[in-house]
């Protein structure tokens, strides 16, 4: 725990990098999604030959956008939550509550990665109609997001625990980091 002043920034920079990569991938997916719908309309009206792959592929893209985007939301703390306790609890107890929140997310991330992997391998033998690729591909972004959520929230748990047992200045630093 004492080594954190040197190690922490590297870990944090690594996680920041991961979240930028995740965001960029889902950004590219968003652009492809919009363009493919432009192609769909063009095909139907101009070519009179509707591309049949767009609908199924769009579902894959939106899954990727959602799960990668949502895991970045965990890192940046942008998800909606109720913040009643922080108004009534003293700071120290609130820090324990925060650790509990991050632990919950950690567990959810692990479960998401594990069971979506199970889903993916189960669905691998079945093809998505009209695309001809394994249905299991649908769950790859979900597995990835589970792993990311696990990494992001373990870092927060670690920081929270360190802050709980450290002198005051460290606490102030990590508290300001958790700002939205």
């Amino acid at each position: 725990m004492n080594s954190s002043p040197i190690k922490e920034p590297i870990v944090k920079r690594f996680l920041d990098l991961l979240s930028v990569i995740a965001m960029s991938i889902s950004g590219v997916c968003m652009v492809i999604l919009v363009l493919s719908f432009g192609w769909l309309v063009f095909g139907r009206y101009v070519l009179n030959d509707t591309p049949t792959w767009v609908e199924q592929m769009a579902m894959l893209l939106v899954t990727a956008i959602t799960f990668l985007g949502a895991s970045v939301g965990i890192h940046q703390r942008t998800h909606l939550s109720v913040e009643m306790l922080s108004l009534v609890l003293p700071e120290k107890s609130m820090r324990c509550v925060d650790i509990f929140i991050d632990l919950t997310l950690l567990v959810f991330g692990v479960a998401m990665a594990y069971f979506s992997h199970e889903l993916a391998s189960f669905a691998w033998s079945r093809n998505i109609p009209l695309l001809g690729i394994p249905d299991g591909i649908r769950y790859i972004p979900v597995v990835t997001a589970g792993i990311l959520i696990f990494l992001f929230s373990s870092f927060r748990v670690f920081n929270g625990v360190v802050a709980l047992f450290s002198p005051q200045e460290a606490v102030n630093k990590s508290a300001s980091e958790g700002d939205r």
Partner: peptide, 14 residues
């Protein structure tokens, strides 16, 4: 999809 295309129509999955 193949059936409608073979019949000359424009198949639209929806």
């Amino acid at each position: 999809v193949g059936m409608v295309e073979a019949l000359g129509g424009n198949a639209t999955p929806m």
